[in-house]
């Protein structure tokens, strides 16, 4: 199932080129096209159905102790949007002389095949309300670029940035952590009447119950490392994670990284009840790792009819969303 760019976006070189953007100010402070003004506020509050009078009625705003009209807090990003002409003109040209910026980052993501974009998270903190005449600038620094993740929309990477909004005097008026998924759209399939009615993307996968005893295991999974807890006193491996060694009673432990190989110890096929986060039939398996511990997991890329107890399997990763990656297993190739 190789796409045209398959391979290039997994290479160490590509990863390094992406990593070079972390910490970089990819958008220098850039003033919005227009200062805060009543007509744009009016368009916003009409479209949102927002009837708070402080956005259009100076008298009502003064009655709340303000000096006059203020803009809706959530509108801060709108003041710095690039507008129709720039959007229609397409991505800004790459400029090698200027150093790495947003255009270069997007070009690099395009090169990896991640041509589509969807916003997933926005975390605003507002330092002060904007008033008519404020001229807002925004700058943007890359915080992180995730490893390639498989999402309901397609394979992609989460790009997290910090946007800082300032007024004409340079005072910070708001900050916004901003996360987008840059992804390779799934290949289009012929429309099928049933598929058309299927909700997509799917509901988020249920959260695991994370506590101080198992947090390390899920944190490692987010980095695509399957770890096994090991007693630091008697070296016995254990799973699921727990505070105390069942063999010798010691509370001291460390971890080892699993080879990722194992076999199906047991399995069930879940048909009912259905949860929208899962695909059915859902194969829930107990996999015994080569290291000897067993874990409950899902088998992927295989039909229930093909699964047999004892079948050799190998680790793969399910990236449910930015905060949740889980080990799954597929048939070990060449094992038959």
């Amino acid at each position: 199932m190789s796409g045209p760019n398959h391979g290039s976006n997994h290479s160490g070189d590509y990863e390094e080129r992406l990593a070079a953007f972390v910490g970089v100010e990819v958008v220098p402070p850039k003033p919005g096209q227009d200062p805060v003004n009543v007509p744009m506020i009016r368009h916003w509050v009409e479209a949102m159905g927002d009837q708070n009078p402080i956005y259009l009625d100076a008298e009502a705003a003064r009655a709340t102790g303000r000096d006059g009209i203020v803009a809706p807090a959530s509108m801060v990003q709108a003041w710095t949007m690039r507008g129709y002409a720039a959007t229609a003109a397409g991505p800004a040209p790459v400029n090698p002389g200027r150093g790495p910026g947003m255009a270069e980052l997007i070009a690099l993501l395009d090169e990896g095949g991640y041509t589509s974009v969807v916003a997933t998270d926005s975390e605003f903190e507002f330092h002060r309300e904007l008033v008519v005449g404020d001229h807002v600038s925004a700058r943007e620094v890359v915080e992180s670029i995730s490893p390639e993740k498989t999402t309901a929309l397609g394979v992609g990477r989460f790009v997290t940035t910090m946007r800082t909004y300032t007024d004409a005097g340079g005072e910070v008026v708001a900050v916004q952590r901003w996360r987008t998924l840059r992804f390779r759209p799934k290949p289009k399939t012929e429309p099928q009447p049933e598929a058309a009615q299927e909700p997509e993307p799917k509901a988020p996968r249920p959260r695991p119950a994370i506590n101080r005893d198992n947090e390390f295991w899920f944190a490692a999974a987010r980095d695509h490392r399957l770890v096994i807890q090991r007693c630091a006193s008697c070296q016995v491996l254990r799973h699921p994670p727990g505070p105390c060694c069942a063999h010798c009673g010691s509370f001291d432990w460390d971890t080892v990284e699993a080879s990722g190989r194992g076999h199906v110890y047991s399995f069930v096929v879940n048909h009912h009840p259905r949860h929208p986060a899962f695909e059915y039939p859902l194969i829930v398996a107990v996999v015994e790792l080569a290291e000897g511990t067993r874990l409950i997991t899902n088998l992927v890329g295989v039909t229930p009819e093909e699964v047999e107890i004892g079948m050799p399997v190998v680790l793969d990763w399910l990236d449910a969303d930015p905060d949740l990656s889980l080990p799954v297993f597929r048939l070990r190739e060449g094992s038959n």
Binding site: P53, D121, F124, E125, F126, P199, A203
Partner: peptide, 18 residues
């Protein structure tokens, strides 16, 4: 709408799902 016109919004932190 719930808080009324004198309220000042200090933060909005959201995650999108479907």
């Amino acid at each position: 709408e719930w808080a009324g016109p004198a309220a000042v919004v200090k933060a909005i932190k959201i995650r999108l799902g479907v």
